[in-house]
Design a binder for these strands. Structure first.
Lengths: 210, 210
DNA sequence: CCTTGACAGTAACAAAAGTTACACTTCAAC
DNA sequence: GTTGAAGTGTAACTTTTGTTACTGTCAAGG
């Protein structure tokens, strides 16, 4: 674990903190599609992402979803931070988008380190900032753009996170994450294909130029 | 200032911190409608709200707005926190919704107090949590509800913040904050009036039962 | 092979929201 | 009083999005 840790966080955290993380943190590996946090869960430890990606989702009254943002390597979950400290339930669902490796930190350490390590404080604040910014981008998408533009942003984002221009999703899955219907997604994807921007196949979308 | 401070924050902050705030903070009063922060501004100090309310807005490419949430008594601006520390520009606009009194804290103190006072840390984390939660509610509104329901939520929220069931806004102003058009707002308000839930007059809306 | 279920394409329609246009009212300034 | 700007009401229409329904295709398992 130590080598992984150093690789990802050595430029951020001082050595003493790295050592502490190595001591109290536990390594966790999750497979693609595995659920990490469910809405309503109490959160008892805080994740540091070493490898992979996690998607964060919000749910409506009917149980339908909306993708909020992705967590990537070097990120932590801002929701978890506040949930831990405030003893409140999770407002979101977290699902592994790729096979993912993370370190779980007991919440007691959170508060301790915030007083003790300046680098930890900066990390935490930076995380909040990144998450708030991503939430704003999500709001922009929903409030200011039409579904065709949102779909393009979604595909671009997906490509970036998975680092693969071949997206292995069904139209139904995309529809869930954009909180719309399969028919609408099919319609808009077809339009993108006829413009030569993507190539459609069963269970996959190849991005040509977006 | 000290009495105001104690009245609002004494149950949150230890005495030593109250004293420090009193020493380095400067009192600021803004009139309703006055702009506090513009998008792109660098933020050099952090506000603590003693009285009144501030609305936080996001802007689209055409210069049109969307209301994100209100800050009220006892709140601080989470965006400011991260902007200060990260030296980044403001992503949002802040305008006084009511006549408002606030204390401005120089940003250097922020970092210092976060290491020094546990109560300050808790306050900052709680602020982040509150703001994230409000952002989620905003996302829910936009993504999951129709305009008629968003309008109702808007009116309820406005009533709560101003503590007045008479809302002095034009339809155009409401349309801006919901990022829609005046015609749509007039249409939906008329429908609410015909259901006996509100009463419409020039420049004002009286909430009967929502 | 043949069946079955998941996936995708598409038409036809319905609902929600945005747009344009115009009439009418109020109110303050002249 | 007259004028003009701001605010509101409403009709008619367009665009966008959501819904329903039906078709065809693909791939795995019997």
């Amino acid at each position: 674990m130590l080598t992984d840790l150093k690789e990802n966080f050595t430029h951020i955290f001082e050595d003493a903190l790295i050592a502490e993380i190595n001591e109290v943190g536990t390594l966790k590996e999750v497979k693609e599609g595995e659920k990490l946090i469910e809405i309503g869960d109490y959160v008892r430890s805080m994740p540091l992402l070493l490898k992979g990606a996690i998607k964060i989702l919000r749910e409506d009254d009917d149980g339908d979803e909306l993708l909020l943002y992705f967590l990537e390597r070097g990120d932590t979950c801002a929701m978890t931070l506040t949930c831990c400290l405030g003893q409140t339930k999770s407002e979101i669902r977290a699902i592994a988008e790729l096979d993912t490796t993370l370190i779980m930190i007991p919440i007691q350490k959170m508060e301790e380190w915030t007083g003790k390590y300046k680098s930890w404080r900066n990390f935490v604040f930076q995380s909040y900032h990144a998450r708030l910014t991503e939430m704003l981008e999500t709001i922009d998408s929903i409030a200011f753009y039409n579904m065709d533009e949102r779909l393009v942003k979604y595909l671009q984002n997906k490509k970036k996170v998975t680092n693969d221009s071949l997206i292995n999703s069904t139209h139904q899955e995309i529809a869930y994450e954009l909180h719309t219907s399969r028919v609408v997604v099919s319609r808009l994807l077809k339009k993108l294909e006829s413009m030569g921007k993507i190539e459609l196949n069963r269970n996959s979308i190849k991005i040509i130029a977006l």
